[in-house]
Write a protein that binds this DNA or RNA. Structure first.
Lengths: 143, 143
DNA sequence: AAAATCACTTGCATTTTACAAGTAGTTGAT
DNA sequence: ATCAACTACTTGTAAAATGCAAGTGATTTT
């Protein structure tokens, strides 16, 4: 299905401030984790997201997926291996959140106790961020 | 007052994922707007934040300020002009959220209808982002 | 001395979230 | 062909967060 499957839930922008309109979409505890799963962990089904270590509740997951689809950040597709599954993909708009996530990672790594994997990733970033981001970007576009 | 004025509200990290721990602090609709006000609009008092165009509720504002202080993102100081006022400042940790906000602005400008000011800001960013960010960074550190 | 301003707090209704259980379609094994 | 397991959800309900209006006590202005 290459069309939106939900009657778009109206997100009413609180203002025309770009930060505010961004937060109207991804300003919560879960949406960016779903996007993280798709970007960095190759997850792309409902069950994948459910099983993430932060343990999102199933009704919240359904709600966020529908919101993100309405906002044009993700899209639903038929799964190549099973009719029972739905394949979720990042749209271009979703992929363009990559730099936001990268900056969040850098910030957190600087100030919090995080997984070692994050530390090595940030170390690589310090060397040539532009190259790493554009490489990740191409990979995401490709799939 | 150069000390924390709140008994730190325990934020329990959901995981050691850096994105997750970041969202534990700023993953909501309001926190980053308060930080935006301090970063880009020179706001630094309770009343300033209350009067922002998105109209945060006063109890929510109080709660977020206390959470952000607990998380070490902002700090409270005596106001130079009045004992009735409290001066809120970004800490280094707070200032380091600048790149996150900048990426959110760029993303939103690309995909949403935003204020003209944002459009010109993004145009400047396209020319030399690094320079602009480090200049803003220095200004924030200075005050 | 009174009125206005400041940074909040309190009470309450509404909304959102979390948790548990259930459903309908699909798949894999017998 | 049948049944259990898996898939993507939905539903019900309790708990928590949010939004709104009004109030409080300290300070500042008039």
């Amino acid at each position: 299905m290459y069309f939106c499957t939900v009657k778009p839930k109206k997100i009413i922008p609180r203002s025309d401030c770009p930060i505010s309109t961004a937060l109207d979409i991804v300003g919560d505890k879960w949406s960016l984790l779903i996007i993280r799963d798709m970007m960095f962990k190759g997850k792309n089904t409902y069950g994948d997201f459910l099983n993430s270590e932060e343990k999102i509740a199933t009704n919240i997951l359904a709600d966020r997926l529908s919101l993100l689809e309405s906002a044009g950040v993700i899209s639903k597709h038929k799964h190549p291996e099973s009719k029972a599954k739905v394949l979720y993909k990042l749209t271009d708009k979703g992929i363009d959140l990559l730099p936001v996530l990268v900056e969040l990672i850098e910030w957190s790594e600087k100030y919090h106790i995080v997984h070692p994997t994050a530390k090595t990733f940030v170390k690589q970033l310090k060397k040539d961020k532009k190259e790493i981001i554009s490489k990740l970007y191409e990979e995401l576009k490709a799939t």
